Computed example of a mutant assay.
Amino acid sequence: MHFTVSKALNIKLFERCQLVAGKDGLNRTIRSVSIMDTVDTRGLKNGDLLLTTGFVFKDDTDKQIQLIQEMANRGCAGLAIKVKRFFSTTPEAMRAEADRLHFPLIEIPYDISLSDLLVLVTREIFNRENFFNDQKRKKEFFTELFSGGFTNKDAIINQLAEYGVFLNNSFAVMYCLQKNSPVSGTTNSDMFLSLISEIETKYDLKMYVVKLDHYIIIIQPQDSLSLERQSVKEAANYLVDKYQKQFPDTGITIGIGNYKEEAVHLISSYIEARNAIELGLQLNNDGIGKVYEYTAMEPDFLLRELPDSILNNFLSSALNPLIKYDEQNDTELLKTLEVFLQCRGKIEDTARSLFLHRNTVKFRITRIEELLKVDFKNGEELFRLQLGLRAARLLHKIK
């Protein structure tokens, strides 16, 4: 983000200076700062902030107005004049012209040294340039890393360590896909990072955030050698829920890659996280704003490798009576069965998930048992049903 006049007026010492005109130009970027002791403006360039006592134009209104005009035309950042020395206050003509041209005009208190301000602002510009250069290098590194550009384990570990990522314990990658557009804007970014800090404490995790087109999070445990799978999913659900409440029009969907033990496998977890989102959104019409774990979806990835003809044959063998019944009676027995099994056969939980009365669910389950002639206590039959339901999802038979 650019170092603007507005930001300069909030840093130490400079905050005592006062903007007296040109408030509509506060977003001008400061790229350099200097002390002016002549009225020669030929060396002025875009982004210059000039500090002056005003001695060279103290008695010449035309020069005062001309200076404002030339600086504004050259794209300078602003002009700061030390008062109570040659001016009791900034001349009205300069204020009027600065307001007209939306050019920031600032008064420096008498007790503040111009050289102190020069050093302060120069240091701030230098620090910010270094920061943004570091951010640029960081983005370039992670872009190359996640595209498979780095394969040497030691090189990856050393570069990650430089950015504060120590992959000594197990880790996993979260890929956060934002709805509508890539994550952007100061408000969204600050709020997102604030949520990450909250989650780190709540779930005892370390979460290293990388911002590329979307947020990528490297997750590690704080102390133990391995991640708790459930805590990571709970943290992801917490993030989705909180973010959705703050920004309902730009909610996020999260994919979680498998847990790894070595830094060289970071790219693998990242790819898995992205694939989990891709398949999750493919399988679910209302899949936005949810969390998808690659581990939980591995059977779906295996089934996806099979030809549709084989999937259709298996689906017909396992669940055809339900599919036909739903088509003929406009019912949702297939969906009810899926949710029933996800809820581990609990009627109350199934009813709550489907927003139905428990008696309605009981009736549907009884009808499913009659049509499929299935015993829900038989493990092999349950496995076959679950596999069939996954095939139905891949073939878009479940809405």
Rank of each mutant, 00 (worst) to 15 (best):
V5T: 04
L101G: 03
P307K: 15
N168D: 08
Q222G: 06
F383H: 06
T89I: 03
G345W: 06
E70H: 03
T201F: 14
V119K: 13
L341R: 07
S170V: 04
L372Q: 00
L160P: 04
E97S: 11
M174F: 13
F166L: 09
N237K: 12
I254V: 06
Q230D: 14
E261N: 11
S170H: 07
F340M: 15
C176I: 06
V210E: 13
V183P: 11
C343M: 15
E381S: 07
A263I: 00
Q230H: 07
L303P: 11
K362I: 03
E124A: 09
I218E: 02
L13N: 15
R367D: 04
I156V: 13
I112Y: 12
V209W: 08
A318T: 08
D223K: 14
Y259K: 02
D111R: 09
R274S: 07
I125A: 05
E70R: 05
R304T: 08
G25P: 06
G280F: 08
R304C: 12
K179L: 05
L341F: 13
V339T: 13
Y270A: 13
S269Q: 06
K58R: 09
K324P: 02
L118V: 10
F142N: 00
N329P: 02
T336F: 04
L120I: 10
V240P: 01
V232R: 00
Y203E: 08
L101R: 10
S115H: 15
N284P: 11
H102L: 04
N284K: 14
N168R: 12
L212I: 11
I30K: 01
E348L: 03
N168T: 09
K179N: 13
G388H: 01
V121S: 12
R229M: 14
M174C: 11
L394Q: 13
D60K: 15
G78I: 05
N284A: 06
V83I: 15
D116Y: 08
N313S: 12
L9T: 05
K290L: 03
S32G: 01
E305P: 12
K153T: 11
F376K: 05
F14A: 10
F131N: 11
F355G: 03
N313T: 06
D24K: 10
D37N: 15
I254D: 00
K377W: 03
G289F: 04
V209D: 06
D48P: 02
Q222P: 01
R384A: 03
G164V: 00
E198I: 00
C176H: 12
L372C: 00
F132Y: 13
M174R: 07
L50D: 06
T350M: 01
G148K: 06
I68L: 01
F57A: 10
G22A: 02
A236T: 05
F103V: 02
P321S: 07
L266F: 05
I65T: 02
I256L: 07
T61M: 10
D286P: 08
D330C: 09
D99M: 08
L193D: 06
K362R: 06
E298Q: 05
K260N: 01
S181Q: 15
Q66N: 14
S194L: 04
V119A: 14
L225T: 05
R85C: 14
N180Q: 12
L385D: 07
T186V: 09
I219E: 00
